[in-house]
């Protein structure tokens, strides 16, 4: 590893949560704007997290603490690996460490709410994981590699070859962002939520750690989205901005649905979209 990679990794680790928090702030502001409200300051997510960090630690079970730390470390590691331009599929598998331990922490508490939330979170993971793998395989079809370094070296925007797979990726993004209609395990919005689903029993600093880890996750998924237009900065920014805007609008106009609907709908639509896209690729290559 040369100096450039190392500095890049350090930069990514420092900047990712800042970007994630800022994005969450903009998100809340825009949501408020859509609802005819003024909305919180852009820096609101940072205030929330700092406040939570200063609260008294209170847990049911020490496994919760163990699990949130593993989640955070796995998420940071994912972002670092992305910055090192490692293998996409490997990054994905490392990401599952964090996701699994988040669920394990919720399952470790004998509380009906968090148990229910954990089961729902597992279903969510079940929903998006195959889709992400399919997206990576699609990228491999175009660029002949799973390595991010090789994908970045591809000279045309991947989006042009895989527009439908990009849609599939946004399904995963929606689930990962906890946005309607797929916010079944825990929602950002109080009116959609009885208690707080999978996050019910995490409190104080541990909730803050979860939030930071979540920011890392979101930055990672957006970074994967950005691979689809990696050839020019303008294209990349437009693609990400449009994607995120669409996410916010969908979040505001859809209600939360049931897990069964989510699983069947996302798999059916996602898998058929992928196959159409693959067929398109095959047709082109002939």
């Amino acid at each position: 590893m040369d100096f450039k990679t190392i500095s890049f990794v350090i930069l990514a680790i420092i900047l990712a949560p800042l970007a994630g928090g800022l994005l969450a702030g903009i998100d809340r502001r825009l949501t408020a704007w859509f609802q005819g409200r003024f909305g919180p300051p852009i820096l609101q997510p940072f205030y929330d997290v700092i406040k939570l960090l200063g609260k008294e630690p209170q847990v049911v079970n020490y496994w919760q603490i163990f699990c949130v730390h593993i989640y955070l470390i796995a998420s940071i590691l994912c972002v670092a690996l992305f910055a090192m331009q490692a293998d996409l599929l490997m990054i994905f598998f490392v990401m599952t460490i964090g996701a699994v331990f988040m669920v394990v922490g919720a399952l470790a508490v004998p509380s009906p709410y968090s148990q229910l939330g954990a089961q729902r979170e597992l279903i969510q993971m079940l929903t998006y994981e195959p889709l992400l793998i399919i997206v990576f395989v699609g990228i491999y079809f175009v660029t002949d590699s799973f390595k991010i370094a090789d994908i970045l070296a591809y000279d045309r925007p991947i989006f042009l070859a895989l527009p439908l797979l990009y849609l599939v990726l946004t399904f995963a993004l929606t689930i990962k962002l906890r946005k309607s209609p797929f916010d079944i395990s825990a929602s950002h919005h109080a009116h959609q939520e009885l208690v707080r689903g999978v996050l019910t029993e995490y409190s104080g600093p541990y909730l803050a750690i979860l939030e930071i880890a979540h920011w890392y996750d979101i930055v990672l998924i957006l970074a994967i989205c950005s691979l689809f237009w990696s050839t020019s900065w303008i294209g990349l920014v437009i693609l990400l901005a449009v994607t995120y805007m669409a996410e916010i609008i969908i979040d505001n106009v859809t209600p939360r649905m049931t897990w069964k609907w989510m699983l069947t709908y996302v798999w059916a639509v996602g898998i058929s979209l992928s196959f159409f896209n693959m067929a398109l690729l095959y047709a082109k290559s002939f």
Binding site: R28, R37, A190, V195, T200
Partner: peptide
């Protein structure tokens, strides 16, 4: 619009 002040209505005492 109390969210202006960062106030959120939360359903969970924790």
């Amino acid at each position: 619009d109390v969210e202006r002040f960062g106030i959120l209505n939360i359903g969970n005492p924790k």
